[in-house]
Design a protein around this nucleic acid. Structure first.
Lengths: 171, 171
DNA sequence: TATTGTTATACTCTATAACTATA
DNA sequence: TATAGTTATAGAGTATAACAATA
């Protein structure tokens, strides 16, 4: 193992190692997402679960269809995810009285407790990731990230991972 | 579709929408990774392909085993990935004369051309993601990101996505 | 006929384990 | 026996399409 780490004597191609801001963002983002996944796994949840719970808490009574649209996900996937959360007793499906095709989604009491735990975990996660930066630096960083996010047209609070993108399969 | 977007009248739980720096990093990172995947897909490549090509260019003659260790990936996966790149004529497997169990990996002439194209694409990607920030702001952002990356113990140039993490499956 | 939710199915990605060929 | 590479197989995650109930 271990050879010296030099810019290809063979190919003569210049430094192929990615060092740009965009790569750092992707690298750090994947790291942060992974760490967060580990933390919520301790609560028996996956990141998508957390996203659904938060969305339902914010907009109780939402239909599965609306949720799918909101998150940019296919309806059948919402079924699977809600099935699991329902099975754990965290969310309830209530048949709408007006249109009985609809399932109005609500957090159960347990769901609300779990949501509170998620908040705690998210705080720890935030502190971990930002460790080493003082308050001023965090503010600067957050400001710059928000500007990029807005410029890129990202919906606040919606992780692109829900959209099954970030794969890019050619051939 | 569309209800007013308010902090849960029902649950009484406070703002469940993630707004922290860590979430922004994950969100933006997934976005950047997705956009990059789209770009290299135009070259008929996936992001993992790009990672391997860059690593092989940097350290020609590397064995598949060493590559797997370097990237934190299981050897069988390297076989699959190299199979594809080999099939496209971008990399060559050369039996080592010293230890004939080894395959020394090298970029072909085509592989080097493709690597140059990757460089172009990466530059466009970088410009796209950082659009809206001036040079000084980019420098500040990059500096802060690098400090976090170092603090988190990330290996420069190695995307955690190679490690199959960022999944976090409980139950 | 159109829509909500569901089920059935298939495909991609990735890991584990068994196998071969060299050492 | 140990190691590099390979093949076989299985699992998780996610999408597409067909279906049932309701409108």
């Amino acid at each position: 193992m271990s050879t010296t780490r030099q810019p290809s004597e063979e190919s003569g191609v210049a430094a192929p190692r990615p060092r740009g801001t965009a790569f750092l963002l992707a690298q750090l983002g994947a790291h942060a997402a992974g760490r967060f996944a580990e933390r919520v796994a301790a609560l028996g949840l996956t990141p998508p679960d957390v996203g659904l719970l938060r969305m339902i808490a914010t907009r109780p009574g939402l239909s599965q269809r609306a949720l799918a649209t909101e998150l940019g996900v296919v309806p059948s996937r919402v079924v699977t995810l809600i099935d699991q959360l329902d099975g754990k007793g965290l969310v309830e499906r209530r048949r709408s009285t007006e249109d009985r095709r609809n399932h109005a989604l609500h957090l159960s009491a347990d769901g609300q407790r779990v949501l509170a735990e998620i908040g705690t975990v998210a705080g720890e996660h935030e502190a971990d990731i930002c460790a080493g930066l003082d308050d001023a630096e965090r503010a600067v960083l957050t400001g710059l990230l928000e500007r990029i996010a807005e410029r890129q047209g990202l919906t606040p609070g919606v992780h692109p991972g829900y959209r099954g993108m970030a794969k890019g399969r050619p051939r």
